[in-house]
Design a protein around this nucleic acid. Structure first.
Length: 268
DNA sequence: ACACTAACCTGCAAGC
DNA sequence: TGCTTGCAGGTTAGTG
């Protein structure tokens, strides 16, 4: 999926086209997502103005006059603006027709995503850690939260209670930039090294947003365009290629069922 | 509380 | 040409 930069890219792509318009029709073709799409959602949102769009972690929030819709792209989801008359592709599960003629389609082959309406908030958002690009997220937080923890640092920074938005790609990249092995115990990393890691997490996410995200297989922004950050990836997806820093072969291990590529020479 | 696993689902590539 | 296996951007529920 889309990690935070891809969700942010999607938001920036669609927001200018549909914010402030009215939902003429929401059509659900397959509501069997991670959670069933809210019962009766089409009738609930029909005729409501889409006041604004925001992002929290990897969730997109579509704020309506009554309540809000929370959209998650899961592992394989994407949202794009399309010609309302164009033919639906396989796995186009939801489409939203707006009063200005724009049509937003939700495409998600694996259906790990979500599309839920609620009048008064979404419980999934209640216990999330800070946004990575704010001052609330810093090295001191990583240090303080990790004391006595035996968990490997990579799953530690991918835990939404630690900080949101850091998935497998950007966790791998930030650890490489920081010179920290992904399997090092979180509790055995100094405050100084966590300060550097927090800085690299911010930098890598910011750079990815500026490049329009990472397109691995099929990610596209709201206008159907790919991202370009994959050209910048230094370890993710590089298997046992030579380290771009020291030329020694990278190593690939599994941590919490996620592949983790690192350089045993540059990362300790 | 913490660490770890399995599960949700489809598509694709690799191996036989 | 199949068939089987394993892996893929995330998150939660369940186990010990």
């Amino acid at each position: 999926m889309p990690e935070l930069p891809e969700v942010e890219t999607t938001l920036r792509g669609i927001e200018p086209h549909i914010a402030g318009t009215v939902i003429e029709q929401l059509r659900v073709y397959n509501g069997s997502l991670r959670w069933p799409v809210t019962e009766g959602i089409s009738e609930i949102v029909k005729g409501q103005r889409l006041l604004s769009l925001t992002r929290r972690a990897k969730y997109l929030l579509l704020h309506l006059e009554q309540g809000s819709m929370m959209v998650h792209l899961g592992m394989s989801g994407s949202l794009r603006l399309v010609d309302p008359g164009s033919e639906r592709r396989k796995h186009d599960h939801i489409e939203m027709h707006m009063s200005n003629g724009k049509c937003l389609r939700y495409h998600d082959p694996r259906r790990f995503g979500a599309w839920l309406w609620s009048q008064d908030g979404h419980p999934q958002l209640d216990h999330l850690g800070p946004e990575p690009l704010t001052e609330a997220f810093n090295g001191k937080r990583l240090f303080d939260l990790s004391r006595q923890r035996k968990i490997a640092v990579k799953p530690f920074i991918m835990d939404n209670k630690t900080v949101v938005g850091v998935g497998n790609i950007y966790a791998s990249e930030a650890l490489f930039r920081s010179g920290i092995r992904p399997d090092r115990s979180a509790g055995r990393i100094s405050q100084q090294r966590y300060k550097e890691l927090a800085g690299h997490i911010k930098d890598v996410l910011q750079a990815a947003i500026e490049q329009g995200g990472t397109t691995l297989r099929d990610f596209v922004n709201g206008n159907g365009e790919p991202g370009y950050f994959q050209q910048t990836l230094m370890v993710y997806g590089r298997g046992t290629e030579p380290c771009i820093n020291c030329q020694k072969p990278l190593r690939e291990i599994r941590l919490g069922q996620r592949s983790s590529v690192f350089c045993a020479h540059c990362q300790r």
